[in-house]
Amino acid sequence: MRNNAPETGAANFANGVPSVPPRVAVRGLTMSYDGRVIMGDLDFHVNPGEIFVIMGGSGCGKSTLLRHLVGLETPASGSIFFNGHDFTKATETMRNALLRHFGVTWQNGALWTSLTLLENVSLPLREHTRLSPREITDIARYKLAITGLAGFEDYMPAQISGGMVKRASLARALALDPHTLFLDEPGAGLDPLTSRLLDDLLLQIRDSLGTTLVLVTHELSSIFAIADRALFLDTATRTVGGIGPPAELRDHSPNPRLRRFLTRGTP
């Protein structure tokens, strides 16, 4: 099921040290809410072209970590580097320039409900490029076609199903050819078949476009199907409970909570 990373994005390792700079690097990140630490001392990196999964039990702070990664929350301490640039200390201009390279999909799609699917995908292009309306429409139609929504351009988000909302959200996130795509629970609320099709689509996107994918999920089937590496947020220690290829973590991790998580509690 897993494919090799494309030549544009694969990271080569020598003695465990990546030879290309990581796409995303998190150093000593502590996330807090209302003065309380949710997760602390997080250290990890995501390589270009990698499918990286952030996993953990419900309420452990996976989505909060994602919000920190895309700059919607301010860390209590620590830094987040994006292509070597410190995102947490970036100026407003720098920040907006970096955001231009992100694509984000949210747990429930978060499509703008007053806009059609075509307008939803067109909006980032209108905001960040100087393309003509005709060019924007062509690109938006293509992105919708990529995600299997050709023919639905004029539909409103309320008129389509949950799986289609997720795919339209993905099309919107891909609008500006982002280097990195952040996905919050892409398979949540979907039936197993649609969820599997979405996994296939994510693999195809990575393989065709060389996009780096950072997913937040706790769906084991998706984790084993598409993740190159996975990060486990451990609620017991409130920090990273393990990081590596999912199958390796399941079979060889010294962390029993992580092994239990990946085997649905079976010994």
Binding site: Y33, G35, V37, I38, G61, S63, G162, A188, L190
Partner: peptide
Amino acid sequence: GEALPGSSAVPGVRAATARHLA
């Protein structure tokens, strides 16, 4: 034939047992 949107839950924050920054 695709299913309609399913429910989604916003993960909460563990308040009672969290350690304090301050």
